[in-house]
Design a protein around this nucleic acid. Structure first.
Lengths: 114, 114
DNA sequence: ATAATAGGCAACCTTTTCGTTGCTCTTTCT
DNA sequence: AGAAAGAGCAACGAAAAGGTTGCCTATTAT
């Protein structure tokens, strides 16, 4: 078995911003509303929330900076839609983490059994 | 096609804490170090970082509260090890999101083509 | 033309987060 | 026994996050 202990397979840093953007209940529920597929306006997304429109706007901007969402203006409203690529990236990241983890476990098992 | 528009498939809230815990570059790199499999002490995890031991400790406690990591004391050192279940949960969450997304896309496609 | 709706921008406040320093305690090494 | 290493606790400060209010502009509806 090749033991490449000098290098870590899982990269740091890059995904922190995406994780952070999803690390808030309000934003997570915005994502939930948007993953229905249809673009929604800020007012629409504000309806049913206890927060003000401006608060929702700020959350949407955070999601936008993390590129989880993009917006475009039509007439007097700005619509937001989901951008699923970063989520896929996160999924891949988590896959790598658990792959490395499983590998570590089987190494451990092999070590114990030898 | 059954259109269950009244309920959202993707749940909010529950995963926010886990996402938030991973939403920091320092903590992400701690996870990276830990997913090698071997439990590491606080001092070990501090070595090579520009931060103080206490800063690292705090980050570890955050990861612990999110149940991404657990700790146990042996002698004078407390060791931390990864707990991969929450990561799996996140992966499942992201799967649900992208499943719903794909579904929305195909609904849209069907609508456009009809 | 006016009123109503949708948003942007800026100031402001409060709470969390991130990191530090200083001190104490326990365990291990010599 | 004494020194060194590992860690816990508490106080503190700076900065960021989350939210609000007030006001102004642009678009749509009546």
């Amino acid at each position: 078995m090749r033991k490449s202990r000098s290098r870590t397979i899982v990269r740091p840093q890059i995904h922190a911003r995406i994780f952070a953007a999803l690390g808030d209940a309000t934003r997570l529920s915005l994502v939930a509303k948007l993953c229905g597929g249809k673009p929604r306006s800020i007012s629409q997304l504000t309806r049913g929330s206890r927060l003000t429109r401006q608060a929702i706007t700020k959350h949407l901007r955070v999601l936008e900076r993390a590129e989880i969402v993009h917006s475009f203006r039509t007439g007097r409203e700005s619509l937001f839609a989901l951008d699923p690529e970063p989520m896929d990236e996160l999924k891949k990241y988590l896959d790598r983490v658990s792959a490395q983890w499983d590998q570590a476990l089987s190494r451990l098992k092999a070590f114990v059994e030898e």
